[in-house]
Design a protein around this nucleic acid. Structure first.
Lengths: 195, 195
DNA sequence: GTCTATACAGCGATAGAC
DNA sequence: GTCTATCGCTGTATAGAC
């Protein structure tokens, strides 16, 4: 049956989140209007408010979902043996997970300052959990004499910063395959924390 | 003599740039209004247009000045002997230069997408010059057998990404001195590119 | 659930007085 | 060089018809 008016539900909620994700990543949260998001979905601006109380909740929902997925995907990895193998697994996981979600990652880093203080605190806590996970690996490696880093907290942040950099330049179908990228970064990380 | 109206020049131009820098870094270019900038300076919004043709030029001017300073400060460093010493000098320079200008650095990375295409291309070219400088060091080191990296371009980006991370957590007066930070990062970079 | 219409505030930028 | 006033537009969010 043809419709004379807009899309009439179906799966409007997910489509709104998808459109917001794309537009926020492209132009930035502050630069994107509710009208633009509605236009992308094919509804009028007012209709968005059936799915989100306001624009801020839309942003927070996207970031929260992303962090939840990150932590549960990480938790679902199979156990491996010893700090060196754990670190290698972490590097590979981090690169792949983030390269699969460039828009979510971009928003998660760029739009932190557009969260309300309460929302910011919640996202930061989740990010901190992820960092602590890596720091635990480094700490154990140092304790076992497998790694030698001057400061495990800084090494944690340095490794994550280095790995996050991949998202700024990697394009699938480019010069390097995902496997090659993983190998190259693992080589640098491994040496950086080595004895 | 008391004035019944606003600030009457003095050095309004620099004060506008300083206010814009602070506000753009704090809230983001798109979220900051010309009225806010004017309020910070203590003039009315219309007065800003004696100093900048529009908001975009204000942003571009800040970013361009920052990149120019980066490149000329880098060029002014004394010559040192061999790739290892050159890399060490680069690491120390990069960390210090960027930690001294947190707002400029933040804007230079976060507001790229708010530049017009022409302005974006100019800033990117300057950034590229800086990266090529580091890549030259790595390449020479590899040629001399001092370094071993699988890919000098990626190693360049990885090192810069790692070093840029310092700005997200370092606070002067914190747990670590600037010298300690420099030592810690140099240790990790040195090992990451080592044979 | 979506539409149209609208309230009300704020935006960048300009004009003309002083 | 700064002010006041204003243009034309866009922003988020809401109300009520269908």
């Amino acid at each position: 049956m043809a419709r004379t008016q807009g899309s009439h539900s179906d799966i409007t909620g997910p489509r709104i989140r998808k459109a917001a994700l794309k537009l926020f990543a492209q132009h930035g949260y502050a630069a994107v209007s509710m009208r633009q998001i509605a236009g992308e979905v094919g509804v009028q601006a007012g209709a968005l408010y059936n799915y989100t109380p306001d624009k801020q909740s839309l942003l927070f929902g996207l970031m929260h979902a992303h962090m939840d997925e990150l932590l549960s995907a990480r938790a679902a990895l199979p156990p491996v043996d010893g700090p060196l193998e754990e670190l290698k697994q972490f590097v590979g996981f981090h690169i792949r997970f983030h390269l699969e979600r460039p828009d979510e990652v971009f928003i998660a880093y760029m739009e932190l300052r557009n969260l309300t203080p309460e929302n910011f605190a919640m996202i930061e806590a989740l990010r901190r959990t992820y960092e602590d996970d890596l720091e635990g690996i480094l700490r154990e490696g140092v304790a076992q004499g497998v790694f030698a880093v001057p400061d495990t907290k800084i090494a944690t942040l340095a490794v994550i910063a280095m790995l996050n950099g991949v998202n700024t330049w990697y394009r699938s179908g480019g010069r390097l395959s995902l496997d090659e990228v993983e190998t190259i970064y693992w080589d640098m990380v491994r040496k950086a924390v080595a004895r």
